[in-house]
């Protein structure tokens, strides 16, 4: 075990802030009353995790997350929500 005293850098502070906001947005997404809001918070969560991936020096994963997580999956969720609402109203 190495026990060196590490200096706190700006990078550490930024990654801490990003991590805390990530957890916060995840909790908000779970607790959101409207499903549409939950989906949008999930999209924001993906967008912020892109920042986290870039800070962890994984740009490949960041690009994939940006496209799939906050683009495609969000759009599919939104379409599904729009489609299901329609069915409920006609019943």
């Amino acid at each position: 075990m190495r026990n060196e005293v590490k200096k706190v850098t700006t990078f550490d502070i930024i990654s801490l802030v990003v991590g805390v906001i990530l957890v916060f947005i995840a909790l908000v997404a779970i607790n959101a009353k409207k499903l549409m809001k939950a989906v949008l918070f999930l999209s924001g969560l993906s967008m912020l995790s892109v920042v986290a991936f870039v800070m962890m020096k994984a740009p490949d994963v960041a690009i994939t997350e940006a496209v799939i997580g906050s683009g495609l999956v969000t759009a599919l969720f939104v379409f599904t929500l729009l489609a299901t609402k329609k069915k409920e109203e006609t019943k």
């Binding site: 490949d60 994939t64 683009g71 759009a75």
Partner: peptide, 21 residues
Amino acid sequence: TPGGGFPGGTMIASAILLLYL
């Protein structure tokens, strides 16, 4: 550069999805 076939292909698909929207 970072990226490649999988993210790029998904980006093409999301462009199509935008047209559907």
